[in-house]
């Protein structure tokens, strides 16, 4: 199973979100072709209602603790309630390009 699929399955099982998108953005960074190091995750769920952003991110970080503890290098997170997602027209910010520092 790819790490991308693993991330999708874990979030899907833990939250049953209204919308889930996991993008492998490793090609935007200084890593070999085919790497699974940099991901962007968008989660839309009513479970985020009334929660501060930091609490939403902690929830996802907790679900992906194993992956964050070694397998993946970067995780861009966009956590929205269904209302926020609708208000933004379903769009989230673009991730930044790599600037070359540290692959630890």
């Amino acid at each position: 199973m790819t790490i991308q699929t693993q991330i999708e399955q874990k979030i899907q099982q833990a939250m049953q979100p209204d919308f889930l998108e996991v993008l492998n953005e490793s090609h935007m960074h200084n890593v070999p072709p085919g790497s699974e190091s940099h991901f962007k995750v968008t989660v839309v769920s009513a479970q985020f209602n009334g929660k501060m952003l930091i609490a939403r991110h902690r929830q996802i970080n907790g679900i992906l603790a194993e992956e964050l503890n070694g397998k993946i290098h970067a995780l861009a997170l966009h956590t929205l309630t269904p209302e926020e997602h609708f208000a933004k027209g379903g769009k989230v910010a673009e991730s930044p390009l790599c600037m070359g520092g540290g692959k630890a």
């Binding site: 970067a74 861009a76 991730s95 930044p96 390009l97 790599c98 600037m99 070359g100 520092g101 540290g102």
Partner: peptide, 15 residues
């Protein structure tokens, strides 16, 4: 952050 505000070494730190 990774790097400094003047010379960031990661796109996320830069932003």
């Amino acid at each position: 952050m990774k790097g400094t505000p003047q010379m960031p070494q990661c796109g996320f730190s830069s932003r």
